[in-house]
Design a protein around this nucleic acid. Structure first.
Length: 508
RNA sequence: GGGCCUGUAGCUUAGUUCGGCAGAGCGACGGACUCUUAAUCCGUAGGCCAAGGGUUCAAAUCCCUUCAGGCCCGCCA
């Protein structure tokens, strides 16, 4: 495969680079003494008039547009949080430097400038450049200055270019960074400890999902990329850390769509001596704090919905949700009647479901989820699909588990953590039996985890919050690809995904 | 897995209905211009119309296959 299939280098720009070197110009110097950012200059000189400032400024950034006017040049330069106009004159720079800029500095290049600030006749705050230095020569053409980079696929595949060109995209990822930072701050202020647990796991667990597999050569052992950090974080609670959390990348071998990426971020939080009611309170606290910090108010709009995060939020049991949205009382009917109801309404899975609990979950998924627009906790899940949640203290066949729904999306999942080692052993054995029967999403038995419970885990509440969906919500982006810097995309050009000769690609 | 839609120059796109020389703007390159800002003016180059096959005197356009992407549904937390 030739270079030109993969590279967008511009022959003219490479020629310019070569000529610059012949002129003794260093195209890729090592440093530049930047004393001011664009934002600082804009703030400090907000009141500047047409007279040049006495004070000298020194800043650096990427050139976006060059407007040549014979013996003067205007250019727009931007750094990570702003753009500013440059003004260069042949009189000031001297013929040699001026011609160097005119000939060789293009949109896309990164330069450092030293000069004074003034406001042009048209009112634009501008740096009157005394001297400049090429800091990085760009040899790829920049997209068009006015329309920018719009092509969705190119924006995802070449995110760096998207970020260079689209301020809206930069703003989205600034917000993402801020959300994660605020989340940490919220938890640190409440004395939670942040830990990192293994991503490569010999036994996967903590969720129902199909894992990615890999192989460790020296150990000659199969390993899985984690589908959840849950079982390791609970070991920490057993070990005596009462308030822990992890912001974890999880990996699930599933299809990709507007709400799912194979690797995604989640915060999982565990706290001893708390139950699922406390974790619902905590979840409310986190979301309402973030909404208020990011939006400056307790509401936000998403996908055409006006969402109100003022506490307390609606809480209803799964039975109540099914009664309200499916119009059927689970307990008033036999399993046969429930099946007939399910079949009549084309509820997926109705043929094989065998218990009230299974029908409860099926009916909720079918009728309930899409109606839950305003923040709503649904709680008390059937035991059948909650192998890590504690049995309900009063209700037979249910667990103390909740999920949070906002705008029809599942945003969080938590429970009173199962800490009875014998119960946990039985439930994981049941999962493993399903797995051996071919259920690709059922869990394995982690005996070491069961053993840890055997030493005694205090009563514990836990919750996992999907960070990507949280960021979608707070940035108003309806596709997960818009809020992931590098969403998973199928390899575009043939040959790029093939293993190097003589190497094992690590797949099982 | 199913449905709908998209792919034309570096970027943004017209042309596809109804087959008839592949067009524009920006960008690039050369030239003019000392307060412009989507600068302006003059000139030049740049295309295997996603890939492959078919129908036709003639295909960007019609048909088939493939690739990549978007949206919706299914599966999935």
């Amino acid at each position: 495969m030739s270079d030109t299939d993969n590279l967008c280098f511009d022959a003219t720009k490479i020629d310019k680079l070569q000529e610059l070197r012949e002129h003794g110009v260093t195209a890729y110097p090592y440093t530049f003494e930047r004393k001011d950012t664009v934002r600082e200059i804009r703030e400090r000189f907000a009141g500047i008039g047409h007279e040049k400032s006495a004070e000298e400024v020194s800043t650096a950034g990427r050139i976006y547009v060059v407007r040549q006017h014979g013996k003067t040049i205007f250019a727009d330069m931007g750094d990570s949080d702003g753009k500013i106009q440059l003004y260069l004159r042949k009189n000031d720079l001297g013929e040699e430097q001026f011609d160097l800029f005119r000939q060789y500095i293009d949109a896309g290049d990164i330069v450092g400038v030293v000069g004074h600030v003034f406001r042009t006749k048209m009112g634009e705050i501008t740096i009157w450049v005394d001297r400049f230095e090429l800091l990085t020569k760009s040899i790829c053409p920049l997209p068009e200055k006015f329309h920018g980079l719009k092509n969705v696929e190119a924006r995802y595949r070449q995110r760096y270019l998207d970020l260079i060109m689209n301020e809206d995209s930069r703003e989205t990822f600034r917000t993402r960074s801020r959300i994660i930072s605020l989340l940490r701050q919220f938890l640190f202020e409440r004395d939670y400890l942040e830990f990192e647990t293994p991503t490569l796991q010999p036994i996967y667990g903590g969720a129902n999902a199909r894992p990615f597999t890999t192989h460790h050569h020296a150990l000659d052992q199969k390993l899985y990329l984690r589908i959840a950090p849950e079982l390791y974080l609970k070991r920490l609670v057993v070990g005596g850390f009462d308030k822990v959390f992890e912001i974890a990348k999880n990996f699930r071998n599933e299809d990709i769509d507007t709400n799912h990426n194979p690797e995604f971020s989640m915060v999982e939080i565990y706290e001893a001596y708390r139950d699922y009611n406390d974790m619902m309170d905590l979840t409310e606290g986190i979301f309402s704090y973030l909404v208020e910090e990011v939006h400056g108010k307790i509401t936000c709009s998403f996908a055409g919905h006006d969402l109100d995060f003022a506490r307390p939020w609606r809480r209803l049991t799964m039975e109540e949700a099914v009664r309200e949205y499916a119009g059927i009382d689970i307990h008033a009917h036999s399993v046969e009647e429930l099946r007939a109801f399910g079949l009549a309404h084309c509820v997926e899975g109705s043929e094989s479901a065998a218990t009230r609990g299974e029908f409860l979950a099926l009916f909720f998924d079918h009728f309930g989820e899409k109606h839950l627009i305003q923040p709503t906790f649904v709680y008390d899940f059937p035991i059948e699909n909650s192998p890590l949640a504690k049995k309900h203290r009063e209700k037979e066949g249910l667990t103390e588990r909740f999920e949070l729904f906002i705008a029809g999306m599942e945003m969080a999942n938590g429970f009173s953590e199962l800490n009875d080692p014998l119960d946990q052993k039985a439930r994981l054995e049941a999962q493993d039996a399903k797995r051996r029967r071919g259920d690709l999403e059922a869990q394995m038995i982690d005996y070491d985890f069961i053993n840890a419970l055997g030493y005694g885990m205090p009563p514990t509440g836990g919750v996992g919050i999907g960070i990507d969906r949280l960021v979608m919500l707070l940035t108003g982006k309806e596709s997960i690809k818009e809020i992931l810097l590098f969403p998973q995309m199928k390899t575009a050009s043939p040959g790029q995904n093939e293993p190097e000769p003589g190497q094992n690609n690590g797949e099982e």
